[in-house]
């Protein structure tokens, strides 16, 4: 179980100087956030509430101003970012194998086919895939990462039509089974498909 206790994060507002005698206000994106991740969960909430920042802190890419996270030490993380972050010169399957720690190209291709990749798409470098295909490849990269015991998925269903969301959600449930997972989404229908507990981040 991962416990997030009293997490705070404020981002600098940029070069604009505050009036004399006043402190730079900054933009507080997380204020005293407390969560527990035990098994899979969906994290929902209005835009700008710090969901992505929370994931980035869990990934070790941001440092919180205050608070602490327990149970993260030694965990192997696989993540799907807001951006696809695929190596553009590699095929989708090679991108999956790159981080997969032993996943075979055949397994990667099989899962990609299940998410609508045609044979020609499997030979195409990721840089030339469509936005939706890149998204699906990035999702499978996280899900197929062997040895990862914490999955952090940021808006994995963006750009997918309803039929594809069905298939992707089924793949998420199947491949994330038995691992702690935090999936951020705005899509209520997709969250229902997953059938996971829903955590809401609303700091208003």
């Amino acid at each position: 179980m991962i416990r997030i206790i009293g997490l705070c994060k404020t981002f600098d507002q940029g070069p604009r100087q505050p009036p004399l005698g006043e402190e730079s206000p900054g933009k507080q994106v997380l204020a005293d956030v407390c969560l527990a991740i035990d098994g899979p969960a969906v994290l929902m909430g209005p835009s700008g509430q710090g969901k992505t920042t929370l994931l980035r802190i869990l990934m070790g890419l941001e440092t919180p101003d205050a608070g602490r996270i327990e149970g993260l030490e030694g965990r192997r993380i696989a993540a799907m970012f807001q951006e696809d972050r695929l190596c553009p010169q590699l095929t989708a399957a090679d991108n999956i194998c790159l981080t997969g720690r032993g996943v075979t190209r055949a397994q990667a291709r099989e899962e990609l086919r299940a998410l609508g990749f045609a044979d020609a798409d499997l030979k195409t470098p990721a840089g030339r895939l469509s936005g939706g295909q890149k998204r699906r490849a990035a999702l499978l990269r996280a899900l197929l990462c062997r040895g990862a015991d914490l999955l952090l998925l940021d808006e994995p269903f963006t750009g997918m039509d309803d039929a594809l969301v069905d298939r992707a959600a089924a793949a998420v449930v199947r491949l994330a089974a038995g691992r702690d997972t935090l999936l951020v989404t705005h899509d209520h229908a997709a969250a229902r498909l997953l059938g996971w507990p829903v955590l809401t981040l609303d700091q208003n």
Partner: peptide, 11 residues
């Protein structure tokens, strides 16, 4: 039906 956009081949 899922649309798989026809893209130009790599080479």
């Amino acid at each position: 039906m899922i649309s798989t956009t026809a893209l130009p081949p790599a080479k």
